[in-house]
Write a protein that binds this DNA or RNA. Structure first.
Lengths: 219, 219
DNA sequence: TCAAAAGTGTTCGTTATACACCCATGT
DNA sequence: ACATGGGTGTATAACGAACACTTTTGA
């Protein structure tokens, strides 16, 4: 089966930057490409939009197919369409991003991708296409979303914490997402002002040092 | 000539929301469509991306071809790709916007568009496709750009003023762009804090009332 | 007793917002 | 004189950023 048009059409893909925190470091979900171009190199998941699906639906589908990840709220970053960004043919991509708790994600490689793996953002492999640009833009957007306003993305941060957590643990999560250290006192004021923290009246134990108060959050 | 692919490809267009102030009211540049679908109805200018041009280049070119407008700094708004947004075939569009001084624009209808005209934002005709959605999003983005930060867009506001202007005139421009009234004293503090206003030591004359001081701005 | 992390307030600068009266001119 | 738009200052609240010492525990 083939499809013919009176004038040339680009291919359109959706690419999705999925961020998570693993072992205290910001990670991104990448797939290893099975096909040329950039065969065997790593890329952010994505693929061609189908004719009967909206952009975000295509992004969701590709994400699921290539990585097994489902049910995450994607946000559009923008379109990338440099003429030579794909050596095969003209490909315009619409980038999306999301922040997810990685341990709730079931990664499953599929026919489209040899492998799906988390990579630390400060230890990335070379990426296919212009995915380094896209990923850098997504990283910037993530930092803004988490800190500048009380967005849904910021609430996801608590998913990286156990149900009972210390304020130091919470601070570490937000520092990781923002990508820079935060002042302890300012952070505590900020988190208390923006969420309903519940002081459980319990303390950590077994630590080598002073026990910390445990909190839970009411989103 | 025809172009054949192994799987279906969408068409990709760029659509551009060009805003200006005319007679004290926010206007947008629309074209009347010469061809189906939505023949004879009004639309924001735009058209198909060529295979060898980047998205923003295509947007610039289409804008020039359809309206004669050149040399404006476009910003990408995002991609719109609902499957049924174009009845002909699947068309994904990347939206751009800009704010320009309309009296420096030479409008020229072309082969692609029967007519290019400015419309007041509060008196819009029915628009083709999902252009009402795109335009509404662009309107919101414009208000944010002008007021929230000292952006390039905000500097364009002064292009709507004569070289020598009164602060009341400047306030009217910013109110139009933001879409809501501003407090006179707060506005004067704000504009003085954010730009180099030069008090020319001159006054308006011929008005029916108290003369106003004339300023110019050093961008 | 020491090392290590927990915990805790204040100050300052910026920004946004609200608000009311007198002034200068033309008619 | 009056109508009309020009011109001016202060107070408050919210936010972000900077900054240092005491407390508690385990080893």
């Amino acid at each position: 089966m083939s499809y013919t048009y009176d004038y040339p059409h680009p291919a359109v893909t959706a690419d999705i930057c999925i961020f998570s925190i693993r072992d205290g470091a910001l990670h991104v979900l990448l797939i290893r490409r099975l096909v040329d171009p950039f065969r065997d190199s790593w890329a952010i998941p994505g693929g061609f939009i189908k004719m009967d699906e909206d952009l975000i639906e295509g992004a969701r589908r590709e994400l699921q197919e290539e990585t097994g990840v489902e049910g995450v709220p994607l946000e559009q970053l923008g379109a990338y369409g440099a003429p030579d960004r794909d050596p095969r043919e003209r490909v315009i991509t619409v980038a999306f991003m999301a922040l997810v708790p990685s341990d709730q994600m079931v990664l499953a490689a599929s026919t489209d991708a040899a492998d799906a793996r988390w990579f630390a953002m400060d230890d990335l492999p070379p990426l296919a296409f212009d995915h380094d640009r896209i990923l850098a833009d997504a990283r910037t957007a993530l930092a803004h979303k988490v800190t500048n306003r009380i967005t849904e993305t910021a609430s996801v941060a608590f998913q990286f914490l156990p149900r009972k957590f210390t304020l130091a643990e919470a601070q570490a999560v937000f520092e990781t997402l923002k990508g820079e250290p935060l002042d302890k006192r300012n952070f505590r004021k900020w988190i208390a002002a923006n969420w309903d923290l519940i002081d459980l009246g319990e303390k950590t134990s077994g630590g080598r040092h002073r026990p910390a108060a445990l909190y839970s959050v009411d989103l």
